[in-house]
Amino acid sequence: MSGIHVSTKINGDAVEFVCDVEETLLDVLRDKLGMTGSKEGCASGDCGACSVTVDGRLTCSCLMLGAEAEGHDIGTIEGIAKGTQLHPIQQKILDHAALQCGVCTPGFVVAAKALLEKNPDPTETEVRFWLAGNLCRCTGYDKIIRAVMDAAAEMRGQ
């Protein structure tokens, strides 16, 4: 089995890796690059815990081969806070106690950030449908939705 050499950018940094064809981007992030913030909850695109962005577009990293990352710009949970400065969505999740076990949280942060970049003023219904691919089993979603709405308001300067 010969590996594939891939050159990509992750959270703004140039990254090169060698992966097997079968390996997903999620496998590469977690097992090759030590970026374990993205989680494997299902490996079938049904839970969103592995959410990343590819050229700014929200994607499940379990539904993409590592090889497909060639030449693209990948964004992961590890790149969202700037040093110790949390993104407003991260801060609001803390403020609203919008997590219990926290394993789905990175996926929600990545997905919600992608939403607010596209739609800075979403309705509750829009937030709920955008995040329908992110499963949370602990919170019943209530506090997560409130946190995202509150982060949106803050980012709009309200």
């Binding site: 977690r30 992961t76 949390l86 803390l94 990175p106």
Partner: peptide
């Protein structure tokens, strides 16, 4: 108050079973 493990969980730093 915010939970003590919150920061690690919103940044992906928290280590779960497979991490």
């Amino acid at each position: 108050p915010p939970r003590p493990d919150g920061m690690d969980k919103v940044t992906g730093r928290a280590r779960f079973g497979a991490d």
